[in-house]
């Protein structure tokens, strides 16, 4: 295909998409019977639900099934794969590392994003200042890992040059456990803080002025204002940001893959899934690790749903 044809194909698919959607919406909106609302709502949600069902739900169920089978997916072995995860020393460490990632990344990234959003709000170079923090979001994780190689590298890394100059000596940052986990987490924080900052900044700007006026009259200011007015006002947004980053963290495998390859006790669940399934061809164990990722996010999902219910109730 030539260049023009490829772009033409892209336009054709968009045109077809809108033609089909228009057709469905027009046809269903004609139905005026009692079932009308039901049929119309189906026209609105079913395309998305169907795609999600095929693309995510079915593979998820498939994984659960595979996780109960042996490595060649030929016979059922019950919960053996899960037993392995919770007894094997290396895999237990993977679980521990994952816990560290999931606790540290969302909290620190959100905190930095929030502080930076407050500090630069209405500052002189606000837009530039914000673009700087957002920039890492525009870089692929492969690119980000490369950027940080130039920081952590033994010989040509910035960090060693720095610690050497200030008299702390040179270190193998990526080898020495358990600190190496923190250095890897820093990379993801560096990427995600921009997302947190941008969303939170928008939310902060929308805090109604009357609330602030009232607080001012009561003599609230400074840190107290931040603690008692700003943070509570943007609480729902904070939850959304924390949730999104938590889920991203659990799924991110590129950073570990590109920097340490899971060596030096740095592997996490998502990377271990990839390694067991695609490298060691152990689909049973790999799928069990993936299922564990779903299970770990469940509390986050449940918490969010309860929050949504609470808001709805008001």
């Amino acid at each position: 295909m030539s260049t023009g044809e490829k772009l033409l194909q892209a336009l054709i698919v968009v045109a077809i998409f809108f033609a089909v959607v228009t057709l469905i919406l027009t046809l269903t909106s004609r139905v005026r019977s009692r079932a009308g609302e039901l049929i119309q709502s189906m026209a609105f949600v079913l395309p998305a639900v169907g795609l999600v069902g095929v693309g995510l739900l079915y593979p998820a169920i498939n994984s659960i099934n595979l996780s109960l089978k042996d490595k060649y997916s030929t016979k059922y072995v019950g919960f053996d794969n899960y037993k392995t995860i919770f007894t094997d020393a290396d895999l237990l460490r993977v679980l521990g590392n994952t816990a560290l990632w999931v606790v540290v990344t969302p909290i620190v990234a959100t905190l930095i994003g929030l502080i930076y959003a407050v500090l630069t709000d209405h500052a002189r170079f606000e837009r530039t200042a914000k673009a700087i923090i957002f920039l890492p979001m525009a870089i692929s994780l492969v690119g980000a890992s490369l950027i940080w190689k130039f920081v952590y590298d033994d010989r040509i890394g910035l960090l060693n040059a720095f610690t050497d100059t200030v008299g702390l000596g040179r270190h193998h940052w990526l080898i020495n456990s358990p600190w190496n986990n923190i250095w890897l987490i820093v990379i993801l924080i560096w990427v995600q803080a921009g997302f947190a900052m941008t969303v939170l900044s928008a939310s902060i700007k929308a805090i109604p002025t009357d609330i602030i006026e009232a607080a001012k009259l009561d003599g609230v200011g400074g840190l107290k204002m931040f603690r008692f007015i700003t943070v509570p006002s943007i609480r729902p947004t904070l939850i959304v940001v924390l949730t999104t980053i938590t889920i991203t963290t659990l799924k991110a495998f590129d950073i570990v893959r590109q920097t340490t390859g899971g060596n030096y006790k740095t592997s996490v669940l998502s990377y271990e899934y990839y390694r067991q399934s695609f490298q060691s061809a152990n689909w049973g164990l790999g799928s069990a690790l993936a299922v564990l990722i779903f299970v770990l996010v469940l509390p986050v999902v449940i918490y969010n749903i309860r929050q949504m219910r609470k808001l709805e109730a008001r």
Partner: peptide
């Protein structure tokens, strides 16, 4: 004029806040 963070910053506006940013 009167966003909460702006107010917060006013008292935070010490060189420390700018330095942190």
């Amino acid at each position: 004029k009167l966003t909460a963070p702006a107010a917060a910053k006013k008292t935070l506006t010490s060189p420390w806040a700018s330095l942190a940013a």
